[in-house]
């Protein structure tokens, strides 16, 4: 029973991260039609930024986190302007360009951080919240989940309550019809990748104090994000968040009661099943004509 309760806590924390990883990917895919393979690397850059600024140069964690968000957002904007825009309407070209970025960012991380063991960031919020002897949440994770949920709520508010948010969703639903409403597609793409980059940078900055930091850490991120995105329904943000939480529960419990390898296999299996049985995902709709 103790393991059960601890696993519930673990699931929610993991779900927050999964959702944060996936929504950025979904947003860029929806609005720009590009599968950004470098999304995991953007998360990695966020983590490295915190490591460099906070652990190496002693800048406060919160300022470092904010800089990470802005920096990764800026990288995203550069990608849109110089790599994705020239390849508009060519999803394969965009994908290949993003794989190029993935390589570049990994090598950049190696140059910045050197080799050696994975980098670590000492937790700015140390200590553990002990609810019961068998129910413990590290303060750092508590902080991370709170910020992640706040960021997701903010995103939800932006997309559902603001005209700019509607325009993003309109472009995702029907580019041409959106253009006919006077929505500037290039500007909307910039907003989408800017938000996506900011979320990736935030996810990386939140992960920095609680996970290993190394140049290829983005792979686990992108694989999980793909599973969550496909299960949730490609292009569906609410689907991605729901799938993230469900997948986190599945992954955590299978890991705790069986093994992590089986948990990942389950994830991939469910992804394949969704692709076969309901390719639009649990929340996705048919693409409009």
């Amino acid at each position: 029973m103790e393991l059960f309760f601890q696993s519930v806590i673990n699931s929610f924390i993991q779900g927050g991260f999964f959702a944060l990883w996936a929504v950025g990917l979904v947003l860029v895919f929806g609005v720009m039609g590009v599968v950004n393979f470098a999304h995991g690397e953007l998360v990695m850059v966020g983590a490295y930024t915190v490591w460099v600024l906070h652990s190496q140069y002693g800048i406060g964690y919160i300022p470092a986190l904010c800089i990470a968000v802005l920096l990764v957002m800026f990288i995203g904007l550069l990608m849109e302007r110089f790599l994705f825009r020239p390849k508009q309407g060519d999803p394969l070209g965009g994908l290949i360009n993003s794989i190029g970025v993935l390589f570049i960012l990994q090598v950049a991380a190696l140059v910045v951080g050197g080799t050696g063991p994975a980098k670590q960031v000492a937790p700015p919020f140390p200590g553990t919240l002990i609810i019961q002897e068998f129910l413990r949440i590290p303060n750092q994770r508590l902080f991370s989940i709170a910020v992640a949920v706040a960021a997701l709520l903010l995103l939800w508010f932006f997309l559902t309550k603001t005209k700019l948010g509607w325009s993003l969703r309109a472009v995702a639903l029907d580019r041409e019809a959106a253009a006919l409403q006077g929505i500037n597609i290039n500007r909307t793409s910039m907003i989408a990748i800017g938000v996506s980059g900011a979320l990736a940078g935030l996810a990386g900055a939140l992960m920095a104090p609680i996970s290993n930091i190394y140049p290829t850490m983005g792979h686990n991120v992108i694989i999980t994000a793909f599973i969550v995105t496909i299960v949730g329904g490609i292009g569906s943000l609410s689907g991605a968040v729901l799938a993230a939480v469900l997948y986190a529960f599945l992954h955590t419990f299978v890991t705790a009661y069986f093994s992590g390898t089986i948990a990942t296999m389950c994830g991939l299996l469910i992804m394949v099943l969704v692709l076969i049985v309901k390719p639009t995902g649990i929340m996705g709709q048919k693409v409009s004509e």
Binding site: S7, N10, I13, Q14, F17, V221, I223, T252, A256, Y257
Partner: peptide
């Protein structure tokens, strides 16, 4: 080598 979070394994 794909473990993102060790909380579940350590709990178990």
């Amino acid at each position: 080598f794909d473990v993102v979070d060790f909380a579940p394994i350590v709990s178990s």
